[in-house]
C-alpha cells in the first residue's frame, strides 16, 4: 500500500512546497521592503534556503547517482556564493553612500 516510490515522491513534493513558500516570501519581501539594504535581507536569506530545499528535493527524488552528486555540489556552491554576492553588493552600496531607510520616512 505504502510503496517506497510513494514515500519518496511525497517527501519531494513536501520539500518543493516549503522551498516555494520561502522563495515566494523572499520575492514579496524584495517587492515590499522600503530600501535597498532591507531588500537584500529578504533575497539573501529566503532565496538561498528556498532554492537549496528544492534542489535537496530533487536529490531525494533521484536517489543515489552521479546526478545527485552534481546537484549536491550545486547546492553547496549556492550556500557559499549567495551570501558572498549579497555581501559584495551591500559593501558597494555602503561605500558609495546609499542612505539607509529609517523608520518613519517614505519608502525609497
Amino acid at each position: 500500500m505504502f510503496s517506497l516510490d510513494l514515500i519518496v515522491n511525497g517527501v519531494t513534493v513536501a520539500l518543493f512546497v516549503i522551498g516555494l513558500f520561502f522563495m515566494f516570501s523572499g520575492a514579496i519581501g524584495f517587492l515590499r521592503f522600503p530600501d535597498f539594504y532591507t531588500r537584500l535581507h529578504a533575497t539573501g536569506k529566503c532565496d538561498t534556503l528556498g532554492e537549496i530545499l528544492i534542489i535537496v528535493g530533487l536529490i531525494i527524488y533521484d536517489g543515489l547517482s552521479p546526478l545527485s552528486a552534481k546537484l549536491l555540489f550545486l547546492s553547496f556552491f549556492m550556500l557559499l556564493a549567495n551570501p558572498a554576492g549579497t555581501h559584495a553588493m551591500m559593501r558597494a552600496a555602503y561605500v558609495t553612500g546609499v542612505r539607509p531607510w529609517k523608520r518613519g520616512e517614505a519608502r525609497q
Binding site: 513558500f21 520561502f22 516570501s25 523572499g26 514579496i28 519581501g29 515590499r32 521592503f33 522600503p34 535581507h41 529578504a42 536569506k45 529566503c46 534556503l49 528556498g50 523608520r103 519608502r107
Partner: peptide, 22 residues
C-alpha cells in the same frame, strides 16, 4: 540559525503592517 533567519525574514515580509506602527 539559518532556518530561524528564514522564518524571521518571511514573517517580516508577509506581515501587513511592517512599516507603519512602532
Amino acid at each position: 540559525q539559518i532556518l530561524l533567519a528564514n522564518l524571521d525574514v518571511a514573517y517580516r515580509a508577509i506581515h501587513p503592517k511592517s512599516f507603519e506602527s512602532g
